[in-house]
Simulated scan of single mutants.
Amino acid sequence: MREVVLDTETTGLDPLAGHRVVEIGCIELVNLVATGRSLQLYLNPEMPMPAGAQEVHGLSDEFLADKPLFADKVDELLEFLGDAQLVIHNAQFDLGFLNAEFARVGKPKLANDYVDTVSLARRKFPGQRASLDALCDRFGVDNTKRAKHGALLDSELLAEVYLELSGGRQRDLGLAPEMAAAGLTGLVDQSRPIRPPRPHAASPAELAAHIEFLKKISDPLWLKVDA
């Protein structure tokens, strides 16, 4: 199953008030395995960056001034997403902004299925905090590089959190060789040793001891025949 973990950074909180997307980060998973494919887009929002938003993600007017417009990158984004199921933390926020951007360039809304990891976390841990930082703390995911929000970094962190929410490391989310070569090593615990398979068959000595034990049992049930 192909999934894309997705996050955005924006100029504010409300696309209906004219706020825009300034960064999109995507990580591709296939059967919960990171494939090494990712997409990061910085976008010129065509509006000044509010101070409060810049404080969150650190993206300034100067940095974004020479970046492409959403219209210039929309086809690249849609090609990467394809028909994958999307994995998004607080999905209505990101989808609201993306669909507003699609509307501006005459594209239809996203029709992809999606998983909202906030809702998933609240079902699994009712009454507990469900922020990305809180879930990183819960699952021991290293988020020390997250001094500010960043769409690609947050997607990497969310991919590992999503693994844990989906059943944990026994589901075997490993790094594909391409992912390791790209240096994106945060999605798997490289220090965890691989445990060799444990033998379960009885040894000859154990079998002999079992036979001797059975000889000591008088009137065993397994020899009785129903009348």
Rank of each mutant, 00 (worst) to 15 (best):
Q170L: 15
A103E: 14
S155L: 06
C136K: 04
L135S: 05
R129E: 05
D154Q: 05
E76M: 09
L153M: 14
L120M: 15
L98W: 02
E3I: 01
E164P: 00
D226R: 09
R195C: 12
A51P: 01
D72V: 08
A121M: 07
G127K: 11
S166F: 01
L152H: 05
L69P: 00
L64Y: 00
I88G: 04
A209H: 09
V30C: 11
L165W: 00
H19T: 07
V225C: 06
D75F: 09
E160N: 14
E212I: 09
P220I: 05
S119H: 11
N90M: 08
G82Q: 10
V141P: 00
P68F: 11
V118S: 01
G150P: 00
L173T: 03
H210R: 14
K73Y: 06
S191N: 13
G25M: 02
E156L: 15
L110H: 04
H149Y: 05
H89C: 05
P193Q: 09
L175R: 08
A121D: 02
E79G: 05
V4E: 02
A151G: 03
R37S: 07
A181S: 12
D61I: 10
L59K: 03
E160P: 00
Q85V: 11
R192W: 11
P220G: 02
D189S: 12
L163E: 02
L41E: 00
V87W: 02
K224F: 01
D61E: 08
T144C: 10
R2A: 07
D75C: 11
L64R: 04
R122K: 13
K107L: 13
A84W: 00
H200T: 15
L39F: 03
G106S: 10
A159K: 02
N99C: 12
L165Y: 03
R198N: 08
